[in-house]
């Protein structure tokens, strides 16, 4: 790793910190968009609080302070991991969200992996047979996937696989009340994940297939591909050793741009398949009007997304040594 690269990554890290700060401030502003404050919510819930108690509580939580002081308190709180308290769930927002985060990350990571793998494979295959019948068929299937919203795919899969065929579990992450060895547990979770992952990734399979096809076609026209053939390499070597890595670069960029969208899609997937993830948590807290919890989910997701984007940046610099000059 050289100096240019370190500079570049340092710059990206700095940018990310600025973005996080903006997100936190935005979240504070949203919280104040809500009619009534935390104490009103609490009062509404208990129903027996008098004005004096409410005033005391406001002083205790700093809600009588000027806006800027409240903002400062909020930001420093968030930086220390204090995302607020959920009175409905009698627990801190952070621990509620962290309990649910692993399921969502599992879902999103598996979906990205499936989407990139199948999408790239289909796109490269189509590019290799460009304008032949198989390319046209792939393009048409991709077009339909591309037009199908996540919740439709989810519902469709539920109807076909678990209601009609009764092959796979329709909900949850683990079969409840059964003692299992680690291996059995992994198998069980995998079975529960097949449908959610498929429904979340189908749309992205379509995107990556389109992208990989276009970028493969472009790469195959490059001079260095001709050089590789001129060396005496066979077609499969040229594709795998020389074209694929270059063709993957736009796909990697796209994954970074879409990771936030995937977390959004996870809300729908988790709701349909009753997975215990943060999306489901957000959905439930919307109907309970538990705003600190919803915003906590939003904040934690943003942190995770920023982190993932930094990792993707790192992967990109490993795949393409030219980033140091493009920066």
């Amino acid at each position: 790793m050289n100096r240019h690269l370190l500079n570049y990554l340092g710059w990206r890290l700095l940018q990310s910190l600025v973005v996080i700060t903006i997100v936190v401030i935005g979240s504070f502003m949203l919280l104040h968009l809500v009619p009534g404050d935390m104490v009103d919510v609490l009062g509404g819930q208990r129903g027996d609080m008098d004005a004096e108690l409410m005033a005391t509580l406001r002083t205790r939580y700093g809600l009588d302070q000027p806006m800027l002081v409240q903002l400062f308190n909020y930001v420093t709180g968030v930086l220390q991991g204090d995302l607020g308290y959920s009175f409905r769930n009698s627990n801190t927002v952070l621990s509620l969200v962290l309990q649910r985060l692993p399921a969502t990350i599992l879902l999103v990571v598996c979906s990205v992996a499936v989407a990139v793998f199948i999408g790239t494979l289909a796109g490269v295959f189509a590019a290799r047979h460009v304008h032949r019948p198989i390319d046209v068929i792939i393009s048409m299937v991709v077009l339909v996937f591309y037009a199908t919203p996540v919740f439709m795919t989810g519902l469709g899969l539920v109807i076909i696989f678990s209601v009609k065929l009764k092959l796979l579990p329709v909900g949850g992450l683990i079969t409840p009340g059964v003692d299992m060895t680690t291996l059995q547990l992994v198998g069980d979770v995998a079975q529960h994940l097949i449908l959610p992952v498929l429904s979340l990734s189908l749309f992205y399979i379509a995107i990556y297939a389109r992208l990989a096809r276009a970028s493969m076609l472009q790469v195959l026209n490059q001079d260095y591909i001709r050089t590789a053939y001129a060396k005496g390499l066979g077609t499969s070597h040229v594709i795998i050793g020389h074209a694929l890595r270059n063709a993957l670069l736009p796909v990697v960029t796209m994954v970074g741009l879409q990771i936030a969208e995937l977390f959004g899609g996870a809300v729908l997937t988790e709701t349909i398949f009753s997975l215990p993830g943060v999306g489901r948590l957000a959905y439930d807290s919307v109907f309970e009007r538990d705003y600190p919890l919803i915003l906590g989910v939003l904040l934690v997701c943003s942190f995770v997304i920023i982190l993932v984007n930094l990792i993707i940046d790192l992967i990109y610099t490993l795949l393409d040594p030219r980033v140091e000059v493009s920066r």
Binding site: D223, Y224, R226, T227, A230, N246, D320, R322
Partner: peptide
């Protein structure tokens, strides 16, 4: 590559960048 080999005009585009 083994009996006849070729050298191209623009070496930047003829070499694989990655």
């Amino acid at each position: 590559g083994s009996v006849m080999a070729m050298i191209f005009q623009d070496p930047l585009s003829a070499l694989n960048p990655v």
